[in-house]
Design a protein around this nucleic acid. Structure first.
Lengths: 194, 194
DNA sequence: GTCTATAACATGATAGAC
DNA sequence: GTCTATCATGTTATAGAC
């Protein structure tokens, strides 16, 4: 009778994943401070102490939850090759996906980054890296990195307005219309001044 | 001996203002959740109970703190007249001021709006109103309001990246260079597509 | 291995002495 | 009017029973 279809460590991994899913969802919806271990445990159907046993602390749970691979598309952390035109296409496609719905891990970080210093550090690092990558691709003239920063912050602003604030005008606008209107603006930022 | 230079109600108003100033600063720096009544009272040099006596609740304190006139320039909640060109100038000047330093009341709202539902409602209302105003000024073709929303969210994103996240590239960039680079992008958003 | 019980602490709010 | 003392609650985290 020791041959079960699900071994002990399998079950352990399963509940661990269930806890991480619940945590991601709650962190994304309410942010770090307002998400309690109790609520995560209840949502996952386990005891609060078990969450602590597995992840050590609330911060550890948050870190693992936002970094976990989960089952969602990556957020373009890969090759930033090609010329400016291809780069813009890539950015707009990425933004289109973002507007369609961001993975909970990213939402959790976005929501917490203004009030939780650790999340702020994490977000700052990720955005700075993205800015550096785009800045390299825009290496044409001076101010390339500053222009890259404005491109990134623009997309962050639109994403926040749409996903986290639900601004009425943005909420029910089709994603492709948003990207179409945004394209000339990003092109202007991608081009060197003068 | 009843003729003091500062009457009783004068002193009351003075300490009330001091409490509001401390609250604004802390709410701006740490957000609603992580700002405690005790910390506000300590910063203002009064007893925590006095803060409750004056403002009833933490929420009441927050509301009065962010809405208080304070001694800072208004955030362009006034006449949105003129043609598109003048509007853009106005927006860029406003953004330039924002980059120079936002009033604590506005910072407090920006910082808390992603995690505190009440602050989110307040911010959504203010931004929706601003979008409607700009949308009227852009009444040229269709999508005017959506383009206005993108203009506003762009500025919000840049402001957050600069003031709240301190993205390294944006932090030490001169404000006038930022506005100069941003102008063509906002112009592109202000113009009807086609 | 899992959960009950509780420790240890911080917070917002209240009541009552001075 | 101002502050001391406290309540009631909710939090993370720990120890020990099952």
């Amino acid at each position: 009778m020791t041959t079960h279809a699900t071994s002990r460590t399998d079950r352990r991994r399963a509940t661990e994943a269930r806890i991480l899913d619940s945590a991601r969802g709650l962190f994304a919806a309410k942010g770090f401070d307002r998400t309690t271990i109790r609520a995560v445990a209840a949502s996952a159907g386990v005891d609060p102490a078990l969450v602590m046993q597995y992840f050590g602390s609330k911060r550890g749970l948050f870190t693992q939850a936002v970094q976990a691979p989960s089952s969602a598309p990556r957020t373009s952390e890969g090759g930033e090759a090609g010329d400016g035109e291809a780069l813009l296409d890539h950015l707009l496609v990425t933004l289109g996906l973002k507007l369609g719905g961001l993975p909970d891990g990213t939402l959790a970080m976005l929501r917490s980054m203004l009030t939780d210093p650790a999340a702020a550090d994490h977000a700052r690092g990720a955005l700075d890296r993205q800015i550096a990558g785009i800045g390299d691709a825009l290496s044409a003239a001076g101010d390339a990195e500053l222009r890259a920063a404005l491109i990134v912050t623009t997309m962050v602003g639109v994403t926040i307005g749409h996903q986290l604030l639900s601004l009425t005008t943005l909420r029910d606008a089709p994603a492709d219309r948003v990207t179409a209107l945004l394209r000339p603006a990003l092109e202007a930022l991608a081009q060197p001044p003068g």
